[in-house]
Amino acid sequence: MSFTNLSSPYQQIKRSTSQIMFIVILCLVPAIMLQSYFFGIGNLLQIILSVFTALVAEAAVLKLRNRPIINTLKDGSAILTAVLIAVSIPSLAPWWLVIIGALFAIIFVKQLFGGLGQNIFNPAMAAYVLLLISFPVPMTTWNPTNSLLPFPVDFIDQIKLVFTGVTTAGHTLDQLAINLDGLTLATPLNTVQNGLHAGYTLTEIAKSSRGINNSEFPISVINIAYLFGGCILLFKRLIHWHIPVAFLTSITLFSFISFVYDPEHISSPFFQLFTGATMIGAFFILSDPVTASTTPKGRFLYAILIAFFVVLIRNAGGYPDALAFAVLIGNMCVPLIDYYTKPPVYGSL
């Protein structure tokens, strides 16, 4: 149980920013490991590229702005942003994709607004949206799980795919992403979205497409790993419980309402919770202390608003996953939410 500490000890250990960021990154590790296990080590490569680019970009901008470079780099916020970008893009995407994303996140979204603590938008999500809008094809070409690959793809092949676009045997990513039945394997959300646009109902999609069943399991496991990491964050009190709890509850509620309304065309709450970016969003992205609302009531409102937009855009929008768009909309509303949910000063009427 957590009580506000009104009695001794009055002096508490205060974690520095770099310690917090380090623990947050540690909490991401289980999910990253599972992602590598199911989909190959491409994602580790993306993380390395992304972190390196982000650090170089941050150092360059800090030098231009005449700010201390080493001290700022040590806070680890750029590394966290870079890791979040890298895990949200397809793990075998071409190398320049993640580099553009990291550059945009650090230079435009973070540093141009004044650096850590000043940015309005979540840098990782803004970069994700930039990439998704600019390069829709590579951003939605997810490779199938290792067990389903039509050709054997080893470690060297994955590196080659990222940097040159072809494996040693000359297969491209598109060829890899098509399984033996000739179906394109995307994320489950993606498959459902495409199927619905083509006029099928959910039961028909589930029957016809093996992709959805086969990649649903690993993606759900990865999501559970994010949930686990998030619970550690909550337990360590690094993030407030308001946002994840409100977000997950309202996403369940909203998707349940829409599911009951039209079960043949709108996916179930479980599907919504465990197959998209819901878990990483709830614990690692929405809870970003810089861009989230800062008042207790405001945090609830912020999370409910984003959950509403996630369900709405997923079910009615053109893009398969909606979290990034919803988070940016939520970020825009934060100043207004904070203004109207200011807690009263103690003792005032």
Partner: peptide, 15 residues
């Protein structure tokens, strides 16, 4: 093959 679509869209113009 892949175009940098953002540059062709109004947000790219702003940036």
């Amino acid at each position: 093959e892949t175009r940098f679509l953002l540059a062709a869209l109004p947000p790219g113009a702003f940036i």
